[in-house]
């Protein structure tokens, strides 16, 4: 297999406050290879966004970050702040949830699209402009020669997100990070954007890390899936592992909580309670208080290790629960 574009090892992020230490991300490992899509799935407070921010050196002030992050094989932790910024600008593109906040309202979109290229590739004047037109055309914005001089407010939500994607792709990055990139969009617009990213990925061989809470989106685009909860990975595997034979009670419950199309069951299977708040994590398994399997004392006091149950399929639980019934201790 090729070398991963981004790999993180034992990544942790914590914040100290008067109310104690909040471990927002705890011992996360994964990697993403060229042309592949890794989906990081989780609910609010799962640490899915923070993982990626910390991995690219963008964690907020006051965050204590531990672990190793390698971008194209180079250790980001060993770099200076300037080098890190350069590496990020040159090789990573970002797409966030709300396109309006990622765009400067008083600057024409064309200039914003190539702003990073000006800094990192030394693109100027007409070159920058024609590159901007090319990029806008690539992301499917009609009549890009005219649109290049428009301002963000002159675009619809879906078109704005296309502009942001064009911006992210300006330096031909090896890695695209999309954080809830389609959450604010309508389904028909979401379908357009997903299709766009897929086709660009095929053409350019970009690796994609797609952060989302939407399992539906994941099933359609991901190769690998990491399910996060309470700052930890609870399950990690291929899409078929996660959707076909989910090993963690949380993953299973999450899948069962969605209404199935065409099946009008009286009642949906639910997970009681709410996701934990980072500084109030339970001592053992983070999911224990809500777990339908409800193991034993061990689950309450001891954190289960992430164990491989099939090649490339890792699960963090003492009690694997197959689709029907509960399997007794595996390890």
């Amino acid at each position: 297999m090729s070398e991963p574009v981004l790999s993180i090892e034992n990544l942790s992020v914590s914040f100290s406050s008067r109310r104690g230490v909040a471990r927002v991300v705890d011992g996360v490992d994964w990697e993403v290879h060229p042309g592949q899509t890794l989906a990081v799935v989780g609910e609010s407070g799962s640490g899915k966004s923070m993982t990626v921010l910390a991995a690219t050196g963008l964690s907020p002030r006051g965050a204590k970050v531990g672990g190793t992050v390698r971008l194209r094989g180079e250790d980001l932790g060993a770099m200076s702040e300037v080098e890190r910024r350069r590496a990020r600008g040159r090789h990573v593109g970002f797409v966030y949830q709300d396109p309006m906040t990622s765009l400067n309202p008083v600057m024409p979109v064309g200039r914003q699209v190539t702003e990073a290229s000006e800094e990192h590739l030394g693109l100027r004047g007409d070159d920058a402009r024609s590159r901007a037109v090319e990029l806008l055309d690539m992301v499917g914005i009609p009549s890009p020669e005219q649109r290049v001089d428009n301002y963000p407010h002159q675009f619809s939500g879906g078109m704005r997100q296309r502009v942001v994607i064009a911006m992210a792709l300006a330096n031909d990055p090896e890695l695209l990070i999309a954080d809830e990139a389609t959450t604010a969009l309508d389904v028909t617009t979401q379908a357009q954007i997903l299709e766009l990213v897929e086709s660009l990925q095929e053409r350019l061989g970009t690796a994609v890390v797609w952060i989302t809470h939407d399992l539906g989106v994941v099933a359609g685009i991901a190769d690998q899936v990491a399910v996060m909860y309470g700052g930890r990975i609870l399950e990690h595997g291929t899409v078929d592992h996660i959707f076909g034979s989910p090993g963690h009670p949380y993953t299973q419950a999450l899948l069962a909580a969605r209404p199935q199309p065409g099946v009008r069951a009286d009642r949906l299977a639910t997970i009681p309670g709410a996701p934990p708040v980072p500084h109030q994590l339970p001592p053992g398994c983070a999911f224990y208080p809500r777990c339908p399997v409800r193991g034993d004392e061990r689950c309450r006091t001891e954190e289960p290790p992430l164990t491989e149950i099939a090649p490339g399929h890792r699960v963090r639980t003492f009690y694997r629960a197959p689709h029907s019934g509960i399997e007794r201790p595996a390890s």
């Binding site: 979401q190 379908a191 899948l255």
Partner: peptide
Amino acid sequence: SAVPTADPE
């Protein structure tokens, strides 16, 4: 047809 479903197949 635009709604993604949680079924990779």
